[in-house]
Design a binder for these strands. Structure first.
Lengths: 224, 224
DNA sequence: ACCTGAACACCGTTCAAGT
DNA sequence: ACCTGAACACCGTTCAAGT
């Protein structure tokens, strides 16, 4: 948890970073089941059990991986001094989405446990800063921040769950084509509204879709 | 997919239902890793590979399990003829939450793949009915339904991810106690707003929390 | 048609041993 | 202190064989 200091010993063949990079590469290439301890170890050139010198167990590797994806997200806040709090919240959400859709295999890991690491806390603190700057009182800001996190992570989870592929998200053209195909497969007699809705959704993908929902949530937050 | 008919043969030792019930019981008792094909088979008293007579692979078992949890959710719609569309949407969302928090282990399965089964479609169709009754035009209703699903599943996913336990969700008292403990662990110097927000959230759990967020989303939907 | 035993190619994790 | 080989108790899935 709290030992960033170097440890003595004969020699460290690896660093935590190398292990996490290998895990992420395997995750991107082959999905969650490809990121096994044994394959990570093989990728960095050690025996499987050598990984346990660096991490207590597989869950610790996954937590560290999630944390490393969160690191520096808040760098997008405060770039434009003209930007209002709402634009800043959107920038933060879009940055998080950008990072996670780049590594779809990591999304289930993020949803799999509590987000209580230092980088997650830092991200939450920035979000609360922005809501406070927007004039929201502490209780509303607290609930609002949670609501925004629910939206952002839920939207990303559904977005990556919708694409069958294991690796990286395909380009938007391909995803639109896939939705058109899904549109054709909805039985319109039994589910007329669903068929119509699928048609509407067919050309509405990715960032645009994400931003629309985020705007509705922010509308509800300032209205409530 | 579409073969509800009986199949001939010497004798069926099991039904799909028995397998799904066993899988759900194992999921509830011991979390996702307890619901292995081998343990499911042992629970229903057959050899591991006998399961493959009923389902193509483990993913098919999981899809069927998710579908079975969705079945009949829409029974809560139309009970109260006085209820407005918004109350009906809330009833539907609360029913889905009730079912999923009763089986936390199934939540990652629901987020793990596209929700395109017949019961999922039926649920989506009911939601679209309600939004149409609320006066939303088809394009807004389509996007709004998706937004609501994002919120509901995201909120449930975060709710079950926050409790470390494998089995059923503990009672609210226990969860409040856990949040108070989490409040004490946030370093207030480095993360003052997070510490304050954690204090706010400490007594605000479960249905009440879920409903507040849902109301904000609905506010944003009718405002936008 | 359905079930079984046996096997294959994997897992995460532990332990004793080497340096 | 760190790494290795070997082992343990598991996985999902396949295949040939039985009825």
């Amino acid at each position: 948890m709290t030992e960033p200091k170097r440890k003595p010993g004969p020699r460290r063949a690896l660093t935590e970073r190398e292990i996490l990079d290998a895990a992420l590469a395997l995750l991107d290439a082959g999905g969650p089941e490809a990121a096994s301890i044994r394959r990570i170890a093989a990728a960095v050139g050690v025996a499987p059990n050598a990984v346990y010198t660096y991490f207590a167990d597989k869950a610790a590797v996954e937590r560290a991986l999630v944390e490393s994806l969160l690191e520096g997200c808040d760098g997008v806040v405060g770039r434009d001094p003209e930007a209002g709090w709402r634009a800043e919240v959107e920038a933060l959400a879009l940055e998080l989405r950008r990072r996670l859709v780049a590594h779809p295999g990591a999304v289930p890991l993020m949803l799999g446990g509590p987000m209580d690491g230092p980088h997650a806390l830092r991200l939450g603190e920035r979000l609360l800063d922005l809501l406070a700057a927007g004039g929201l009182a502490t209780p509303v800001a607290a609930r609002g921040a949670y609501l925004l996190i629910v939206y952002v992570l839920g939207a990303i989870a559904l977005e990556v769950a919708d694409v069958p592929q294991a690796g990286a998200l395909p380009p938007e053209e391909e995803r639109i084509a896939a939705r058109r195909a899904a549109f054709g497969e909805v039985p319109a007699e039994a589910f007329p509204r669903t068929a119509a809705a699928t048609g509407v959704m067919a050309t509405w993908v990715g960032t645009e879709q994400f931003r629309w929902g985020l705007d509705r949530v922010l509308d509800g937050l300032v209205a409530g």
